[in-house]
Amino acid sequence: MTTDAAASPAPAPAPAGPPPRSARRGVRRAGAAVLALAVLLVAALGGVGWYFAGVAIEVDHAAEYPIEIEDVGDGTVTLPREPFTERAGTWALVWKGGRAMLGPIVGGDGDHVVRRVASVTEGQLAKGVPANVDNWLYDGDPKTALGLEFQDVSYPSELGPMPAWLVPGSSPNGTWVIGVHGRNADKAETLRVMRAVHATGLPMLSIAYRNDVGAPASPDRKNHLGDTEWKDVASAVAYARSQGATGVVLYGWSMGGAMVMTTLRKDPAFVRGVVLDSPVMDWSSTLDKQGDARHLPRFVTNVAKRVLQRRIGIDLRDFDQRRYAPRLRTPTLMFTTADDEVVANRPAFAFAKAAPPGMVTHIAVQGDHTEAWNVDPAAYERALTSFLTKVR
């Protein structure tokens, strides 16, 4: 009988010793490299975020002239064909020391557009001069630009006296319109609507605010996206009240719209109505739009938004007006443009939809940022006049 011998037990494995010194060095080097790369990526991400946030809060009043006048002659001007040079509507052509009112397109080709020159109000048109197309249309002051009598006034604020234009109405005792321009703009942005407002008999106070040319600067000399600037609007309301106003209509363009909405939320009692033109109804969405335009990954834009909130102490959630729309009790006229390349439009549409029925009159037209008036001045002014007549 055959039997199998029991298998010998396998030898116990030798206890593992420390890795060779060279291997340990390699692991440490790899770990250090990964850590260094992570630090560099975080630094780069933070740097991009810091830069983008800085762009958003930068105070910059410099004029830009991105095109060159190609030719001038026989009451026309030839410009490079760009989306902003070929738009129908009412526009000005501006250059350093000059301004002309543009008429309709009368010719051109694939690379050029020829427009009629309605008038030259300042300077002299010349070939080869750097220029830009201006949707503000007017420059100067209400008297030089529009022939309207006005007063240079100042209203008290927490930073000191702020300059403003006061175009008197039929009486100082009644409803005033307070015009609030957009980010890095100035009072001239409000000139387009002054004739229409004046025709209603309402006084119009067009204000400068902190960091404007000729106005006191904020302590950090930064733009706070309306988070502190709204206080100047509130100060202007107090000034109007001290001069006989029994109510106000707040009229804001772009960031001015964000300022107006914050002022309304803080103290709605004295506000008879609100007019918004291409308003910022959500800064977070608008910053996303600006980041996308710069081809930034969304996570980089999110970092930039966190950096921005820390730099200027803003909570972007406070500027999502959609949250407050159901509580709106002040009649509001709002203009938006389909091709707005600056401000996100969807929050404005959502705000109008979420507000109580009949509280928001929303007029959506073609055009770019704050160009609703330029596209069709007569239609814009009819809507504005009708609204002001109802809420005065």
Rank of each mutant, 00 (worst) to 15 (best):
128 G>F: 05
346 R>S: 15
165 W>D: 02
265 R>N: 03
279 P>W: 03
159 L>K: 02
318 D>L: 14
121 T>Y: 03
25 R>W: 09
198 H>V: 10
373 W>C: 03
189 E>Y: 07
112 H>D: 05
61 H>P: 00
388 L>C: 06
350 A>N: 14
350 A>D: 15
177 V>T: 03
325 A>G: 02
129 V>D: 04
374 N>V: 02
126 A>H: 11
137 L>D: 04
104 P>H: 14
157 S>F: 12
293 A>I: 10
293 A>Q: 14
343 V>P: 15
357 P>C: 13
134 D>H: 12
379 A>I: 10
60 D>C: 08
330 T>Q: 10
364 A>G: 06
34 V>G: 13
294 R>G: 03
221 R>P: 00
240 A>H: 01
209 Y>E: 00
86 E>A: 10
247 G>N: 06
35 L>T: 07
391 V>E: 06
7 A>W: 08
169 G>M: 01
140 G>W: 11
367 G>K: 15
137 L>T: 09
47 G>M: 08
204 M>W: 01
16 A>Y: 04
379 A>R: 13
59 V>R: 04
214 G>D: 07
322 R>E: 13
334 M>Y: 12
293 A>L: 13
158 E>H: 15
209 Y>V: 03
339 D>W: 15
18 P>S: 13
305 K>L: 07
106 V>L: 09
160 G>T: 12
103 G>F: 02
340 D>A: 03
326 P>W: 08
326 P>K: 10
245 A>S: 11
225 L>P: 00
169 G>I: 02
167 V>E: 03
195 R>L: 04
149 E>D: 15
365 V>T: 15
108 G>W: 15
158 E>L: 12
353 K>F: 14
195 R>N: 11
225 L>R: 01
295 H>L: 14
138 Y>G: 06
332 T>H: 06
169 G>R: 00
304 A>L: 04
252 G>N: 03
276 L>V: 01
211 N>I: 06
377 P>Q: 02
216 P>R: 00
